[in-house]
Amino acid sequence: MQFRVKDDGATVHVSLEGQLNFAANEDFQALLSQLGAFKNKKVIFDMTALSHIDSVGLGLLYIAREDMSEAGSTVVLANPRDNVLRMLQLTEAHKTFEIQR
């Protein structure tokens, strides 16, 4: 997985690319470290270029959300591809995340 973080003031855009799965641990840790600098922001995870997510990757998003929430930030999952959206639906992620299509 690759990612890019862009700070737009009140909003932080995080573009995710590739596969967010069991092999993305190190990259996701680097992402968590970067996001740790932000407080009271709206953090948008842009999933346009995310080709696959598994339950491990989803678990990482839940961990990120928990950390962000403690820093007063909210998390939005945006623009998931059909197969990624299907995974989000199957796991009822909408109960925890705001999902924008």
């Binding site: 598994d54 339950s55 678990g59 839940y62 961990i63 199957l90 796991t91």
Partner: peptide, 16 residues
């Protein structure tokens, strides 16, 4: 739980 960070995989496979 619906916000579980682990333990979803097999249940998901079983449903599909």
């Amino acid at each position: 739980d619906c916000d579980a960070k682990r333990g979803r995989g097999l249940g998901l496979i079983n449903r599909i």
